[in-house]
Design a protein around this nucleic acid. Sequence first.
DNA 1: CCCTGATTCGC
DNA 2: GCGAATCAGG
Length: 175
Amino acid sequence: MSWTEDRVDVLKKLWAEGHSASQIAKQLGGVTRNAVIGKVHRLGLSGRATPSRPVKRPPRLARPKPQIQATGKVEVQAPTASPEESRIRRSDQQAILSALAPAPVADGEAATILTLRDSMCKWPIGDPADPQFAFCGRKSDCGPYCTEHAKVAFQPQRKRDRKGGEEKVARKIAG
DNA sequence: CCCTGATTCGC
DNA sequence: GCGAATCAGG
């Protein structure tokens, strides 16, 4: 498909109406949203109303090109040591951050929905409708619950309906 | 994961 | 001029 006058017209109209690039691409047909965005830029009407995007990014580097060798080996262009390129990737930063923040809440302290993290016991305490609703919050390194709550949560089917014993235990643990 | 627009550059 | 690849971010 090519950008005929009427297609460009539709593009302009839909873009002015606030449709997203992918929506426009879908409606036009035969083009991807990248094509739409590229065309929008070429037409010079890129910056619509963008209230929720005061995002300024530093200029991106040239796309690294995989090089196909005569041997059939595929190599990536050697990474240079420029400050821009030594920048740590965002996803890696997030991984590092989450690794460095293992226990925001002290052991034994209840966690709210806001402070609950991975590696924290997600056993609910109280009524979910209650404003005081919280989670156990103790360390849970291999499952969703701490070791105590895991015993209750992952009980085998046997003995489930017995009065007395387990309900008592569960109530004691849950608070 | 889904999505958004922005940018670069080979074609 | 075109748009895929890739980016940063919601």
